[in-house]
Nucleic acid binder design. Structure first.
Lengths: 105, 105
DNA sequence: TGAGTCTGTGGCTAAATTGCCATATAGTCA
DNA sequence: TGACTATATGGCAATTTAGCCACAGACTCA
């Protein structure tokens, strides 16, 4: 039936996913995984953080179910589980543009 | 041209919006504003937090440009600036379902 | 004016997040 | 086996966030 607890649980689940995406470096990573999977070292070069930091970002994303990993030899490749996560950006950018317009134009 | 700084700025702007949405109570609020604007007291009843807490949630959302406010008499009404922000749900729910399937089915 | 209502702010503590370093683990290849 | 590479983890300090209480400000209405 959906009592109050279920209600909150639904939003808590969504929160976890949104939170995982709510970081500039992780957004960069997700964007870069849209077209093709990438190994950690490629992502380290991309975002320019310490490898341990990138690794933690990836574990946040994996823990939220947004990416999957695949170990092949020494490398671990990450890819999006739902490429649709990138679609949200269209909307986010609408908000960004709306904000800019109101501030400066 | 887009140097590295611009690159990061873009993602920082997106981060701010994502971060503002990355909270269960704020997701509840956004959802409830999809169909119609609401005053703060209605939102307080809805999420069940202290009015000061709800007020702070709303200021986070407003600061990110996701909602707008309109004072009428004693009440302040909030509404979405871009109703499209709700579209995130379709995608997020896909991730949620994917996660559930992998964990239990 | 004064009581009452709605909303926002300051201040505080607890909790979560970030990002680095050091180090561990797993795999490759000579 | 031993040196080397790629990735993950533990630990830590700094920063940010959350949510409550107390109170201030704005507005209404008698």
């Amino acid at each position: 039936m959906g009592n109050e607890k279920d209600f909150k649980k639904t939003y808590k689940r969504r929160e976890k996913i949104m939170k995982a995406m709510a970081h500039a470096s992780r957004l960069v990573i997700l964007d870069s995984l849209y077209k093709t999977e990438k190994c950690v070292c490629e992502l380290v070069d991309l975002v320019g953080d310490d490898p341990s930091t990138v690794s933690k970002h990836l574990s946040v994303l994996k823990n939220a179910g947004i990416v999957d990993d695949d170990k092949r030899g020494l490398k671990v490749f990450y890819k999006l589980t739902c490429p649709c996560v990138i679609e949200y950006i269209d909307c986010i950018e609408k908000v960004v543009r709306k904000n800019s317009k109101e501030l400066w134009g």
